[in-house]
Design a protein around this nucleic acid. Structure first.
Length: 114
DNA sequence: ACGTTGACCTATA
DNA sequence: GTATAGGCCAACG
């Protein structure tokens, strides 16, 4: 595992329950602004990791569950999000702006660049 | 090694 | 406001 993936996992693991973030925010945290796709690949690889990664709390900028199809079952992501108090309708998070968790705004996050 | 794809984002029209 | 184009890095065939 590279440090890049480690940073991604560190940030994702720090996401509080009932909150969601976007790939771009994480990508910005690690310094690669346009490398949001790397976060997606990291999430896909997170399944193979021994520890649990709340990848269901990571959605795209639109708040749409684009990666639900990559979970064990497409319903897994929605179930997990609803279990944390979030509302998901038609693969879309309701009140996304309110439940959005910005890692750049949170202290204790290793910010590479701005 | 080259071309394509992918859980995306930003910019311009 | 939506639609289209370009870019980014890594993995797969």
């Amino acid at each position: 595992m590279n440090d890049l993936y480690a940073d991604i996992y560190e940030i994702v693991k720090k996401i509080p329950a009932g909150r969601v973030t976007s790939y771009g925010a994480i990508a910005s945290c690690i310094g690669s602004r346009g490398s949001a796709r790397l976060v997606g690949w990291a999430m896909n690889a997170s399944r193979h990791l021994p520890f649990f990664i709340p990848a269901h709390r990571v959605v795209n900028r639109n708040g749409m569950l684009t990666g639900k199809h990559h979970f064990a079952t497409p319903e897994t992501m929605r179930e997990l999000l609803e279990n944390e108090g979030l509302t998901v309708i038609n693969d879309q998070i309701v009140n996304f702006s309110e439940v959005f968790w910005n890692p750049l705004k949170e202290p204790g996050i290793e910010k590479k660049e701005f």
